[in-house]
């Protein structure tokens, strides 16, 4: 099936929107009418056809536009992509994982031919045809990680495993919810989760780390995380806070439907074979409130979740400025009827 790629922007005039099909496949993150942290990790198994989890690496209608936005971010700030020298083996592992997944699951758009170490990669949507020698960085125009992640939706972090901990020693991060690779580079799992409120007290990170240290090859896992973003801006980085922070004060009862977006991250983790590193992928999905309320169950549920969210969490996620306005707008779509269990729309 050929994906119709859209021409759209995630900055300036913000022409991003979701087609009806993209709305239906949106990975809605709430399976009940309330939200609290949990170690909500599950096997990254293939989901239903056409869903965001049908394939391990999800390519959708926003692919071409997102890759153009990533290029703009990297041009303005090359430190969004960094790798410490001991991560080169992991970079090749990542390139193999992404190329083999994309070519297998989207053969009409990508192809990979391998003859020993001589590889031939074709990316039709971006017009790329590249022959190179696997594990020979001199044969690619960029480092293996930057090369392939400029062609794959989602941010990627490579975590080295040592001292019974995971260390963020490489990554490309251009579509982030207010965190910085440049700041976190070289930190361990407990350190980079330091700012998260409430979760430390209930031991979430110790349990999650223990679980991830034993993550096995061939058994990737995933979880959903969420926040909200004003305007469909992918690059909500601390580095650019001066550009987008002010947007939070621009929400009015009249523009909630178009301005306020639910931002969901489909996070997946794979054990990499040669390096024993873990790749942590953070794939961002945006949906406008106007698009979300086309699914009555999601409208009722998001209204209840936002209304009842603990204050610390709303502050941490940066929702405080516009939460009340958004809850009031969503309340028009909540008749108080019970919602069915599970994530999926009725």
């Amino acid at each position: 099936m050929t994906i119709p790629f859209k021409t759209e922007t995630f900055r300036d005039d913000f022409t991003f929107s979701n087609s009806e099909a993209a709305i239906r496949r949106f990975p809605f993150p709430f399976d009940r009418d309330a939200y609290m942290y949990a170690v909500n990790i599950e096997q990254h198994m293939p989901g239903p056809a056409k869903s965001a989890t049908e394939f391990p690496i999800d390519i959708d209608e926003h692919y071409v536009a997102e890759m153009a936005d990533r290029d703009l971010v990297l041009k303005a700030d090359p430190l969004r992509c960094q790798s410490l020298p001991h991560m080169m083996t992991a970079e090749w592992d990542l390139l193999e994982l992404l190329m083999t997944s994309m070519a297998r699951d989207y053969p009409e758009h990508f192809s990979l031919e391998r003859s020993g170490r001589e590889w031939h990669w074709i990316n039709r949507p971006l017009g790329i045809d590249q022959r190179f020698t696997f594990e020979d960085p001199a044969t690619l125009p960029l480092s293996p990680m930057e090369y392939i992640t400029r062609q794959c939706q989602g941010d990627f972090c490579l975590l080295d495993q040592r001292d019974d901990n995971l260390w963020m020693d490489a990554g490309i991060v251009t579509t982030q919810a207010d965190w910085s690779l440049d700041f976190d580079l070289g930190m361990n799992f407990i350190e980079w989760h330091g700012p998260v409120p409430l979760a430390h007290e209930i031991g979430v990170f110790e349990r999650a780390l223990k679980f991830l240290l034993n993550l096995q090859q061939g058994r990737p896992v995933r979880r959903l995380n969420w926040t909200m973003t004003i305007n469909p801006r992918l690059d909500t980085s601390p580095e650019n806070y001066h550009r987008w922070g002010i947007d939070r004060t621009t929400v009015t009862p009249d523009n909630v439907g178009d301005k306020v977006h639910l931002r969901v991250e489909l996070q997946a983790l794979w054990r990499l074979p040669r390096s024993n590193a873990i790749v942590f992928s953070i794939r961002c999905y945006l949906i406008k409130m106007r698009e979300l309320v086309t699914q009555p169950k999601w409208a009722r549920r998001l209204h209840r979740v936002l209304r009842d969210l603990p204050g610390e969490l709303a502050d941490y996620k940066g929702l405080t400025n516009y939460r009340e306005t958004t809850v009031a707008w969503l309340s028009k779509y909540d008749d108080g009827a019970p919602t069915s269990p599970g994530f999926h729309p009725d």
Binding site: H86, M87, T89, Q161, R162, Q216, Q217, G218
Partner: peptide, 10 residues
């Protein structure tokens, strides 16, 4: 599948 509990420190 291979499991590494004795990895090199790179």
């Amino acid at each position: 599948v291979p499991i590494n509990l004795f990895p090199l420190n790179r």
